[in-house]
């Protein structure tokens, strides 16, 4: 939790800093940009490829189009916004990706021409007036179910497809991947498993995955082909991980620890040296008082 807060704080400060010098900048799109055309006709398939690229490169600031999760502090628009769409045609949008402005980086040399057009198709697919051809990609409504077998440390995943009427049917030949949940992102583990005719697949859990101090671990099962089966996932808590023996380094005697945990060697060196010197000083001071005696 602390990490997340810190990360948020840093993002916030960083955003503010960038904001402070980019706030006055304005897009200056030349007229010719409007007439720039791609070499291929926009299709849903290309737009789908563009979506993957959008998620990689654009989502941090703009959010998914139409969801309103754009970063307002740096004036990054929600690209699904009707007003935005009406003011920018595909050519103008392509120009913006290419050139960049202020906080918006230029993708001129970072992405291939086709990729940039695919992103354009994806974004423009939110514009009602934009003509996009081909078959719209429909994902099936897949569902995963997980059962665990503690004795054998195996997971049994069941994949089923829910049809229009809400009836679910087990599905054969579906690939499922397993992940361990980390603080940031998911760690893929093991091999991809494929469901049999009953829609089930058996996953043998590896022995060497570190859990928390009780061996607890959170596992996630997902369809490998999310385009075909959807993004459904199923998570489960297991205590099959290895037990983590976390030793807080601050609790040991270290150079970076607090004063009451100073390393012994340092403490002894300090005491012996300082003590030795001050005992000598005190001895001499005492001897000064003996001067009178020595004169008798």
């Amino acid at each position: 939790m602390k990490h997340i807060l810190k990360a948020r704080k840093i993002t916030f400060i960083f955003t503010l800093l960038i904001f402070s010098f980019s706030v006055n900048a304005q897009w200056n799109i030349p007229d010719y940009a409007k007439d720039t055309k791609p070499n291929v006709k926009p299709t849903y398939k290309l737009a789908e490829l563009g979506k993957q690229l959008f998620i990689k490169n654009c989502i941090q600031c703009h959010g998914l189009p139409g969801e309103g999760k754009n970063n307002k502090a740096i004036n990054a628009p929600d690209l699904g916004n009707v007003e935005y769409q009406s003011k920018h045609n595909a050519g103008q949008f392509y120009y913006q990706i290419n050139e960049g402005m202020g906080f918006m980086p230029s993708f001129k040399d970072k992405l291939a021409k086709e990729d940039k057009w695919n992103i354009t198709f994806y974004v423009k697919s939110f514009d009602e007036n934009f003509k996009i051809t081909g078959e719209e990609i429909k994902t099936k409504n897949g569902v995963i179910d997980l059962k665990k077998d503690d004795s054998a440390k195996t997971l049994i995943a069941t994949a089923s497809i829910v049809d229009k009427n809400g009836i679910s049917k087990p599905s054969e030949g579906v690939e499922i991947n397993f992940f361990v949940k980390r603080i940031f992102g998911n760690l893929p583990i093991g091999e991809t498993v494929i469901t049999d005719q009953n829609g089930t697949a058996v996953f043998k859990f590896p022995d060497d995955i570190p859990g928390d101090k009780n061996g607890k671990i959170k596992i996630i099962a997902k369809f490998k082909d999310s385009d075909a089966y959807g993004t459904a996932m199923k998570s489960a808590e297991l205590n099959w991980g290895t037990h983590l023996h976390f030793v807080n380094p601050v609790l040991e005697r270290t150079l970076w620890g607090p004063n009451n945990r100073v390393p012994i060697w340092l403490l002894l060196s300090f005491l012996i040296v300082t003590g030795g010197v001050w005992l000598t000083i005190l001895y001499v001071v005492f001897q000064i008082t003996q001067i009178k005696k020595a004169g008798k």
């Binding site: 001499v284 009178k292 020595a294």
Partner: peptide, 20 residues
């Protein structure tokens, strides 16, 4: 410190100076 110029006192002071 009661210094009277005795040889013993000189000796003591010279010793203390040496230590310091």
């Amino acid at each position: 410190f009661g210094f009277k110029g005795h040889t013993e006192q000189y000796k003591l002071i010279k010793r203390l100076i040496r230590i310091m």
